[in-house]
């Protein structure tokens, strides 16, 4: 398969995010408006999955896509406080503990990771984890 250049892929993802094509439980978009011509910094939100402690919560994340994206995975950091095994004490998402980051493929995107994080929240082992009060940030 031909390699999709970084900016093409990111532009496509931007459109998906703005028009909310696909999943309605995660959302993402460029952080700095149109000023960041390299499209490196993104915002993401995850709507807490139902039947879990995260229900009705919105989690905000910062996403950084490095120059090697999509060959190397983006870096995710939670802005909203959250208690998850794959998130460290500073809110950084630990790539080694999240399947799609540790086994990153170039076809993956920001949405893939956000969805996997949401699945993590809904997983039977994590959905009852005690969480910090809503609205608190790292």
């Amino acid at each position: 398969m031909a390699k999709v250049p970084r900016n093409f892929k990111l532009l496509e993802e931007l459109e998906r995010g703005e028009k909310a094509i696909g999943d309605r439980t995660v959302s993402f978009g460029l952080a700095d408006g149109g000023e960041d011509i390299y499209m490196s910094n993104w915002n993401g939100t995850i709507i807490g999955p139902p039947h879990s402690v995260h229900e009705n919560r919105i989690y905000s994340l910062q996403i950084h896509c490095g120059p090697q994206y999509p060959d190397s995975p983006p870096v995710f950091k939670f802005v909203s406080r959250i208690n998850l095994p794959c998130v460290d004490a500073n809110g950084n998402v630990l790539g080694a503990k999240l399947g799609c980051l540790s086994q990153w493929k170039a076809q993956y995107g920001i949405e893939t990771v956000l969805q996997e994080l949401r699945r993590e929240m809904a997983s039977s082992s994590n959905r009852k984890l005690p969480q910090p009060p809503e609205g608190s940030t790292f």
Partner: peptide, 9 residues
């Protein structure tokens, strides 16, 4: 109501 757009509340 809470609104989210492009990853921002």
């Amino acid at each position: 109501i809470r609104l989210v757009y492009s990853g921002r509340v």
